[in-house]
Design a binder for these strands. Structure first.
Lengths: 337, 337
DNA sequence: TTGTATGCGTTATCAA
DNA sequence: TTGATAACGCATACAA
């Protein structure tokens, strides 16, 4: 067993007494190779500790077998869980996933990512926050892109999304069904652009209106910081406000848990004093105390669909953009009991 | 703006009226290039939508600028948090990080990973669970490896670890200081080999002995499943046992949170009926209700050190293996109040 | 300061 | 069934 490092295909070929091409054929089993030869080659590969050089292979073949998954924060429970599913689904199609952390970026950073790539990607699953600004630089890419979560206003990309409006509407109605009438909403950032957050806010609003409740601007709380600590502070504001709030719709489970913590800091009890519902059904939400009611999109479905889309588009870049929305259900847990 | 895709350096060169080599020099700014020429080249790059071909560059240069980070579960809060730190630290050194999910693998799978790489890596940060079985196949790798968390019994690799024994000992002593005398421990897997988990168990044991408490085998609970649900079940067992347990040391925060949930399912209150402490100080532990006391290793220090090690070893593979242990502190929160 | 020649390790093509 | 040849796109070494 040679110490490896720079064993090339030619070395293996020499060792096995065949041509490099035959080694290549064995490795990729492209054509029928004599059983004897194949065995000799395999033995030589083992003996030499040969490992294929991906760069050379990619350069020659034009494909890398790698798809990128760009997400804002790898440490976020939602993205972590989703990444694991994408990895699994991609493996079924023979693809490897390279995870990219974008950090909820704006245009300039997107461009940087696009240019500074050190990885050869066959395609990219892009879970972006700021699609509008992201699209121009991103369209220069040389590989297909599938958008996750957000939608491209111009409709130029495949995308898989979740039922943002319907999901939040159902969540809001669930609170109403549980007897809430002063329902606050926790959003993030501004609502001028039609982002995921805006869609979720719209779902909340329309559910209130459908059920004859008047959306009250005072009941809208905006996160100035998407971290858990930011959400916790929002919980403090809600607790300290004197608005008779008896229910809260948060735009994500992560935020919901932070808000719960903030409420708890102020001695507000969930669900006794106030009910609360999130969005995503991250694994943590079942474990949290109290466990968190939430909108649960079918994440596996979403991951599988995203991978299907990118794989098919890699195969044929000319097909027109396709769009899918993952099914969801409301999970009732202690936080809205 | 050409639609890109297969614009090569030669195309850019032609467009700018220079040689390919000059384009290369501008891109990598290796030698001094005339300001005029540089401007022309940059314009040509923008105009053509040129993007460097990483495969060709890597093939030629022998380096990819990418280090791998192999972790068992990307969805696990600890690994997610740690990955984010590694990405940051690597960027400082001009490296890109490719995250690899190994799934708490055994030898065969490790070999598979080693062989089936589709990424060209300059080095690998390996956060392994099963080091002993992992090492043989992994040593065939053609790039440097730094071990995280676990240690190589044979001492052949650089590694960065945390104070597993001292940390858990301090955690156990904290419980004793808080008045606990029947302290259970939650471990995972068998304790025959000197894994991270065994070290943490040893810390618990030695702290008990140091403080004149007898380690009771009945108070050791073993997870049969590292998931949150597994930990939750363990919480049920602890609650249902009639052993007078008044404190619990869990080998990780994730497990601790699952156990808390299990205790809560049975109406056991933390910290009133039972105190509980974890290990890792993941972001979730500050938010959890009750917030979780824990052993907090300096994760940023650990990430920075790991990146330092791999970068220096890439530069000079001949230096002897080095080993570091991250400092830690005990974080006191509600769960042991 | 810029250009020319050459080869990195692999695979597509075609010939034997 | 196997092998010879060329080429993928870039950067190193050296020459101009």
């Amino acid at each position: 067993m040679v110490k490896s490092g720079k064993v090339t295909m030619s070395d293996v070929a020499q060792l096995a007494g065949v041509s490099p091409m035959t080694v290549s054929n064995v490795i990729n089993d492209r054509v029928r190779v004599n059983e004897d030869t194949r065995a000799r080659v395999l033995a030589a590969i083992r003996e030499s500790g040969y490992q294929i050089n991906p760069s050379a292979r990619n350069l020659r073949s034009g494909r890398s077998g790698v798809i990128g998954l760009a997400i804002p924060q790898i440490g976020n429970p939602y993205f972590g869980m989703f990444a694991a599913l994408v990895i699994e689904e991609a493996r079924r199609h023979g693809y490897h996933v390279a995870i990219e952390q974008t950090g909820a970026l704006a245009a300039g950073e997107a461009a940087a990512i696009a240019q500074s790539r050190r990885l050869e990607l066959d395609g990219l699953l892009l879970s972006a926050v700021e699609i509008e600004s992201l699209v121009p630089p991103v369209s220069v890419q040389s590989y297909p892109i599938v958008l996750l979560g957000e939608q491209d206003p111009a409709g130029r990309f495949d995308h898989v999304t979740v039922a943002n409006e319907a999901g939040t509407a159902a969540a809001t109605e669930h609170l109403i069904d549980q007897g809430c009438s002063r329902i606050a909403v926790v959003t993030g950032g501004d609502l001028d652009r039609l982002t995921m957050i805006t869609r979720r806010y719209n779902g909340y609003r329309s559910a209130l209106e459908d059920r004859g409740l008047r959306p009250d601007p005072e009941l809208r709380f905006t996160l100035d910081d998407l971290s858990w600590e930011g959400a916790r502070s929002t919980g403090h504001w809600i607790a300290d406000s004197d608005l008779g709030i008896d229910g809260v719709v948060a735009f994500s489970d992560t935020v919901a848990m932070g808000v719960m913590r903030g409420l708890r800091d102020r001695g507000v009890s969930v669900p006794d004093d106030m009910r609360l519902i999130g969005f995503d059904n991250v694994p943590e939400s079942a474990i949290f105390i109290p466990s968190l009611s939430t909108v649960s999109p079918d994440h596996r479905w979403k991951a599988a669909k995203a991978v299907d889309l990118i794989v098919s588009r890699i195969a044929d870049p000319t097909i027109p953009p396709r769009q899918f929305t993952a099914p969801f259900e409301i999970i009732r847990r202690e936080s809205t009991a």
